[in-house]
Write a protein that binds this DNA or RNA. Structure first.
Lengths: 333, 333
DNA sequence: CTGGCGAGTGAATAGCTATGCACGCATTCG
DNA sequence: CGAATGCGTGCATAGCTATTCACTCGCCAG
């Protein structure tokens, strides 16, 4: 009964309205030349049949689907939620749709590339640094523009947007020094994250240019558990840091909780802590964490601009400054 | 130069390989009748040209795109992130793609429905209760199945999956009573959320069947700030509750922080607190919040099953039990 | 009165793939 | 040796819309 049902086509509407298929198409095309009376007839018939124009034939001809694929590696970090939210709003405002692709690793992305190409997505946004050069090259061969966030890929069809991780690292060093820190610690994110590398390098550079000793290092992940583990490692010995810069907020929360629970240390009285991302939670009472706001709005705006750039354009990389938001966790001692 | 470039078609590959277009199609169709030698020739040519089969013509004929639209109202609540994560995995495993649609209100969904229909999405999953009956009816007219989570819509093309909110409310009442609570408080979510209503009703029923006085009520949102405000309201008077059930974890965090900061009350020593959703954060040191795990896996599995159900089927609503995870915040006094 | 013009309409077509149908060829069986 | 079977291939077509082209008709200006 409903097995072979198919949605009404423009031809069906045309038959019902007693006009040609072209007329129906024109009725739904803004600015097309059509008499008001005809348009009204068509609209009435369309309404009665529940007709919605099929977008696929247009896509088939133009190879422009209006769909942007957003590739993420998981949602455990609320930072991705912020980014997705902003992207979603921007894409909707631009009249485009978001195809969300979650991948565990490059290998899986490879498998999905075929599908993305098959759907003729207009572009790919990689919210993660996990898109490998290999996968990027593959997309480039298909002439699908790719915008990466906080990565360091390069290529003809690759544009990238980064927050100014290096400068933020420097700023963190200056801030911790100004607030009375003397022995510095750094809680690292995953080694394969360019953002992590830049933040660490900036922090080291900042300490060096102030004539301060380098930071003790621990960690290796962007999640809460990594922060816990890093804190245990950093504060196990006798020479405990009194100022810690964490590669992101989630790790910072783990650090703070561990300092309190396992070492009975107070923030900021015993240890100053700075994070990165400025999650909503950073403002919550147990943390009141000083952090760097990536200015997701600006990041996404830049990414959207790069999406529409032609291939071979000159400006293919943008850096968005991140803003320091100081809270209780770096109150001067 | 690159303005009129178009991706290679099966015809291009056929020409390059010296075979017919049909042969190319068959080479990419598993189980099709084709000689191994021919397949090899085709694959070599396809590789050289960077050919990927265009999925659109198939969709055009079958009206099945393999795309499922997921409608959400925002990402501020990490619970949505959990749900998205699980859905994403399930859809990928089923070889389908996820079109993520973020809407502010029903009105916006109405506007997007045309597009969804135009792309011939196979189904719509509404992760929010914000899909109105009106929008649902509209989708039904288009014969697009819709699966709603924790909502109470009804109709021919609507299936729904809910966690057992009522039972959880009852369980919360029993638990708080068993742990020594005597004066009960309820921190409500938004009034238009069926989940909120069911949780509150279950809690009330639970208290009543134990012969306990009804709970004092405050709140009206699922976010942290609502929890803060609710706590201020509940604990302003002289008759302070000593056991609070919150409609979700995020609000519970706001409650706990406010109890500590503004009222100098300890959890669980002075007040027992129970939340709902079992976010990752519920396990963190400052909270150690007793909560109900919605079993997102099961929820999504049920939703996936309902996606493929035929219209007019009998089983169109499922309830998934949520599991109590007890932590420090309800330690017996 | 006629040529021209503009508005409105219908017919035809491109865009790409999967698949049913028919055909050729080789192999096997009676 | 003839017939039948089955494999492999090519041809033709459906699916739906936007757009181009050609055509008609009414109207105005010369």
């Amino acid at each position: 009964m409903s097995g072979n049902w198919r949605p009404p086509s423009s031809t069906d509407v045309a038959r019902a309205a007693g006009v040609s298929q072209s007329a129906v198409s024109r009725a739904f095309t803004p600015g097309a030349r059509i008499a008001e009376a005809t348009r009204a007839k068509v609209m009435a018939a369309a309404e009665a049949l529940g007709y919605r124009p099929n977008l696929l034939p247009k896509i088939l001809q133009t190879n422009r689907s209006g769909i942007v694929a957003v590739v993420v590696g998981g949602f455990y970090n609320p930072y991705f939620a912020m980014t997705l939210e902003a992207f979603s709003l921007a894409l909707t405002a631009a009249g485009r749709q978001m195809l969300l692709v979650r991948v565990d690793s490059d290998r899986v992305l490879d498998g999905v590339v075929d599908q993305l190409a098959g759907y003729r997505v207009d572009a790919v946004v990689s919210a993660l640094a996990l898109t490998s050069q290999d996968a990027a090259d593959q997309l480039a061969k298909l002439r699908i523009p790719i915008v990466t966030l906080n990565s360091d890929l390069a290529g003809d069809w690759i544009r990238s947007v980064s927050s100014d991780n290096f400068a933020a690292g420097e700023a963190a060093a200056r801030l911790l020094h100004a607030r009375g820190g003397t022995r510095f610690g750094f809680v690292a994110g995953p080694a394969d994250s360019p953002a992590q590398v830049a933040r660490e390098a900036g922090f080291a550079q900042g300490l060096a240019s102030l004539g301060l000793p380098p930071a003790v290092r621990a960690g290796g992940g962007y999640d809460y558990a990594s922060g816990e583990a890093a804190a245990r490692a950093l504060f196990a010995g006798p020479e405990r840091p009194d100022a810690v810069f964490c590669a992101n907020d989630l790790a910072a929360f783990g650090v703070i909780d561990t300092l309190r629970e396992a070492f009975d240390l107070k923030v900021p009285d015993d240890v100053l802590v700075v994070g990165y991302d400025n999650l909503d939670m950073a403002a919550w009472a147990p943390y009141r964490l000083t952090s760097f706001d990536q200015d997701v709005e600006a990041l996404v705006e830049a990414a959207m601009a790069l999406l529409s750039v032609e291939a071979g354009a000159t400006c293919v990389a943008r850096t968005v400054p991140s803003q320091l938001v100081e809270r209780e966790s770096t109150r001067r001692r």
